[in-house]
């Protein structure tokens, strides 16, 4: 469903000069599985997912989502993706129903099915009580529900959740994770990015560890444990990240020598 190969993204930054936010990342995600992107803040997770949602253009590499290339047919990719992140807010001056209806139309849900579909989504997410509430009047949890409803209203085969639980209380986060698990049962292809270890262990079928724009490890929990001989996910993650930083430091020390020779 999702095929990513050699994906790279660079941009200029005022503080750090030229930054490679994503460096030669490759992975595949299939229907009916949840793929976890695990990494510290600023690892490049959001950049990667933004490229998948065609909001950013890759500097190099290829990404195919639901059979459509992100650079060649971005509109088709967007139509087949449900995307939710901390940056996809909801409109203050629209009610929950208007918001979902608007995006349903933009995503091309046929007018005849639209209201049935909205009713069903509102039913599933138990948000009929906030149906006519304006976005500005909603709590964080309510907004998150509207966002999910917006993400799934067009029934996309691919779903991307970028740190969806950040800023949520335990109860709301739990029900959100449940909702995502249910979507997997429907056979969706899901990417789930987070920096919270426990969520990954609980939810994801396969995991990719990203740090400083590089994919350090990829596989299911058991595979990773076996590969790196570390039963505890958190320790494993920490080991990989420190090792990578050390090797980078070593390389930058040898770099001037290379240049001189």
């Amino acid at each position: 469903m999702i095929h990513v190969e050699g994906l790279t993204k660079r941009f200029a930054d005022l503080r750090r000069g030229f930054v490679t936010a994503l460096d030669d990342v490759s992975f595949d995600v299939h229907a009916g599985e949840i793929f976890g992107l695990l990494g510290p803040n600023g690892a490049g997770k959001t950049t990667c997912l933004r490229i998948l949602s065609t909001v950013l253009q890759p500097s190099a590499g290829q990404a195919v989502v639901a059979g459509h290339d992100v650079t060649e047919d971005p509109a088709a990719v967007r139509a087949h993706i449900g995307f939710m992140s901390g940056n996809t807010g909801i409109y203050d001056r629209m009610t929950a129903f208007e918001m979902v209806e608007y995006f349903g139309r933009l995503y091309g849900v046929p007018e005849d099915d639209l209201h049935d579909r909205i009713d069903r989504v509102f039913e599933t997410l138990q948000m009929n009580d906030i149906r006519d509430l304006l976005g500005s009047k909603m709590s964080t949890g309510m907004k998150q529900k509207v966002s999910i409803a917006r993400t799934i209203v067009h029934d996309p085969p691919v779903l991307v959740f970028d740190e969806p639980t950040s800023g949520l209380d335990v109860l709301v986060a739990r029900s959100l994770l449940q909702a995502i698990a249910e979507l997997r049962e429907e056979g969706k292809c899901i990417i789930f990015s987070t920096h919270i270890m426990r969520e990954v262990e609980k939810l994801c079928d396969r995991i990719a560890i990203v740090h400083r724009g590089r994919l350090l490890a990829c596989g299911n929990v058991r595979e990773l444990e076996e590969q790196h001989g570390e039963p505890d996910m958190e320790e494993l993650f920490f080991d990989l990240v420190t090792k990578h930083d050390e090797s980078l430091a070593a390389r930058s020390e040898t770099a001037p020598v290379e240049a001189a020779s």
Partner: peptide
């Protein structure tokens, strides 16, 4: 803004 940009 991003909500709008990710729609078709």
């Amino acid at each position: 803004m991003e909500t709008l940009l990710i729609c078709p």
